[in-house]
Amino acid sequence: MLNEIIQTIPQVLIDGLALGTVYAVIALGYTMVYGILELINFAHGEIFMTGAFIGTALLIFMTGTGWGAALPAIVMLIIVLIVTAFLTGFLGMGIERLAYRPLRNAPRLIPLITAIGISFLLQDVVRFIAELTKGNYIVTGPSLFTEQVLIKTSSISSIFNDASIKTSFIIVLVTAVIMMIALDIFVNRTRWGMAMRAVAQDRETASLMTVNVNKVISITFFVGSALGGATGVLFAVQYGTIDPYIGFILGLKAFTAAVIGGIGNIRGAMIGGLLLGVLEMFASANLTLLTGGVFGAEYKDVFAFAILIIVLLFKPEGLLGKPVTEKV
C-alpha cells in the first residue's frame, strides 16, 4: 500500500499545487478584509465566480471575433486577466460601499448575514445572465493551453510513476505566484500597504493620524476582489467548465485555507491554500486505498475540513497566526 501511495506523489503534487494556488489567492481576499474589518466576506467566493464568468465571456468573444487568430493565447489571457481584475475590483468596492459600510458599526452578525445574502444574489444574477445569453448556466470556455507534457519521474526514481502536466498548469501557477508576490510587496513596501496595516492594527488611531480609513477599506476590497476575479479566470482556463455555484464550495475551502494559515495573515493564507490543495489531492488519489474502499475520492471535502478541525484543536490561531491577548 505504501508503495502505491508513493508512486502517485508526483501527480498529486502537480494537481495539488494547481488547486492550492487557486485556494491561496482566493484566501487572500478573505484574510485582507478580515484583517481590517474583522468581517468574514462570504460574498468573496461569488466574486471569484463572477470573475470566472466575465473572463470566460471575454475569451469566447475574443476567439469568436478573430482575435484568437490575431493574438497569441498568452496575450489574450493577460488582457482578459487585467480587464476582469478591474471589473471585479470595482464590483467589490461597490459591494463594500452599498452593503457593508452602512453596517460598519452594527453588531457583527448583521454584516455576516448581509454577506451571505449578497452571495446568493450574485449566484442568481450570474445564472440568469448565463441562461439568457447561452441557454444554460453551465458554461464551457474556449480551450487554451491544453497541451500535455509528460514528466518522466520514473527515470529519476523507479518508485515514482510518470506524471503529466497541462501547459495551463504552468500558466496558472506562474500567474498566481506573481499575484501573491505582488500583493506581498504592495502590503509590506508601499504607502497604501502601510496604511492598510495601520488601519488593521487600530482603525481609530489611524484616522487620527490623517489616514483616510474609508478609502483604505475601499482599496482593500478592490485589491482583494481584483485578485479573486483574476483567479476565477485562471480556474476557468485550468478546468474548462464553470457554473454559478463554483464559488460556494471553493469559497468555503479558501476560507478554510485562510483559517489554517492564520486568518488576517497574508503569508499564512498563501501557505494554507497550497497546503490544503496538496492534502486534498492526496486524499482524492489515496483515500480509497487508505480506507480499504470504505471512503472514495468524493470524500476529499470531508478530509479537507477534518484537517481544519485538527489545526484548530492544536493551534487555534492558525499556522502563522499569533495568539492575541485581550486586556480587560
Rank of each mutant, 00 (worst) to 15 (best):
V12L: 10
V12K: 05
I14D: 08
I14T: 09
D15C: 14
L17Y: 02
T21S: 14
V22C: 10
Y23S: 05
Y23I: 01
Y23N: 06
Y23P: 01
A24P: 11
I26Q: 01
I26T: 05
L28Q: 03
L28W: 04
G29M: 06
Y30C: 03
Y30G: 00
Y30W: 01
T31H: 00
V33P: 02
V33F: 03
G35V: 12
G35E: 09
L37M: 14
L37G: 03
E38R: 15
E38H: 15
E38Y: 14
L39A: 09
L39C: 10
L39H: 12
L39G: 09
I40L: 15
N41Q: 10
F42L: 15
A43C: 13
A43I: 04
H44W: 05
G45H: 01
G45P: 00
E46D: 15
E46V: 03
F48P: 03
M49I: 05
M49L: 07
M49H: 09
T50M: 12
A52Q: 04
A52N: 02
A52C: 07
A52R: 01
A52H: 04
F53N: 02
F53I: 05
I54Q: 03
I54M: 04
I54S: 04
G55L: 01
G55K: 00
G55Q: 00
T56Q: 00
L58T: 09
L58R: 08
I60A: 11
I60W: 07
I60D: 12
T63I: 12
G64I: 07
G66P: 08
G68V: 08
G68D: 06
G68R: 01
A69Q: 14
A70M: 15
L71H: 05
P72H: 02
A73W: 08
A73Q: 15
A73Y: 07
V75I: 14
L77N: 07
I79K: 00
V80M: 02
V80D: 00
L81M: 13
L81K: 00
L81H: 05
I82C: 10
V83M: 09
T84W: 05
T84Q: 06
A85G: 13
A85E: 03
L87V: 15
L87D: 07
G89Y: 04
G89M: 12
G89Q: 11
L91Q: 08
M93P: 08
G94Y: 01
G94V: 01
I95E: 09
I95H: 08
I95T: 06
I95S: 07
R97G: 08
R97C: 05
A99M: 14
Y100P: 08
P102W: 08
P102D: 02
L103Q: 09
L103V: 08
A106H: 06
A106V: 11
P107F: 04
P107W: 01
R108Q: 13
R108D: 13
